[in-house]
Design a protein around this nucleic acid. Sequence first.
DNA 1: CTGAACTTTCAAAATATATTGAAAGTTTAT
DNA 2: ATAAACTTTCAATATATTTTGAAAGTTCAG
Lengths: 168, 168
Amino acid sequence: MKLADARNEFIAKWGAFGSHWGINRTMAQIHALLLISAEPLSQDDIMEQLNVSRGNANMNIRELIDWGLVDRVIISGERKEYFVAEKDIWKVATQIVKERKKRELDPMMKVIESLEHVEGDKKDPAFKQFNETISGIKHFGKQADKMLDVMVKADENWFIGSLMKFFR
Amino acid sequence: MKLADARNEFIAKWGAFGSHWGINRTMAQIHALLLISAEPLSQDDIMEQLNVSRGNANMNIRELIDWGLVDRVIISGERKEYFVAEKDIWKVATQIVKERKKRELDPMMKVIESLEHVEGDKKDPAFKQFNETISGIKHFGKQADKMLDVMVKADENWFIGSLMKFFR
DNA sequence: CTGAACTTTCAAAATATATTGAAAGTTTAT
DNA sequence: ATAAACTTTCAATATATTTTGAAAGTTCAG
């Protein structure tokens, strides 16, 4: 397989993969393109290579910057802005974990906590089941939260190394 | 807050939460409803409580069964089928991990592996970057894979207990 | 200050996804 | 074998999300 085909395949598949994860196709494709680009790319480069409109490119580049996955770089003597992706996959993963925890797990846990003390009849099975479910989710959420925090703060070698040794 | 309101709030929020995770709103709501129901529910119960159509309820119940999150139960003397959700949140989580690994991570890793040996010029920076990115993803994917396998096979007390002790 | 280079916005259009409900299919008791 | 009870399907419809591109906004060199 030729490099050009392999690059296209990677971009297409990473785009499709991203869409299972709440990241839209263009955003994942731009990310993929930047991941395999040795040099910074301008917005026009991205528009051209992926065949997307100016607005779409702009919006999704900003979103990637917002997620901490892409940085702006300035090239001296150039007027345009250029963009590069964080290439270290461990950092990419921890960054995504961190953002999703902030955007999804944390708000969910606040809701769960607000549902912990509900009025009701202790004899009512519906009441019992509701409380048991909520407290089970809360318990699980707290554990997950701790673990994700450790992961986000750790560096790869320490984390993976530790886990691997631990799990034999 | 009254139980009825709390239940509605939980169903609504679990539904919204699910949609960040590639699970559609109705599917997540049915799951939420079953999680807090002490008794098995029929399809008609679900349709009525969530105000969804027959087809929609049917399709999403089947999907939940497919994901291993809901079971059919028969109540003796009754013609109708009833449904219950797995209530143990740890089991719910491992089941989801298992399915998503199978549906998403495994196919992605196959693609990555197919992109490992591409023709190209070793001096070309684009070629180098492509190969580095692919091999970084592969390496990370393998570690993630092992870890998820351990998690799926472990039981909660062992897994969480171990991690907590380990991470102090 | 001016205008060229560049970036951002956003309403309209296109696309993708979810939902409905009536019709077709299946199962079971008699 | 029949028909009532129940389940599944699927084309049409509704809803939600993504994409476009022209217009408005910004920055900066001269």
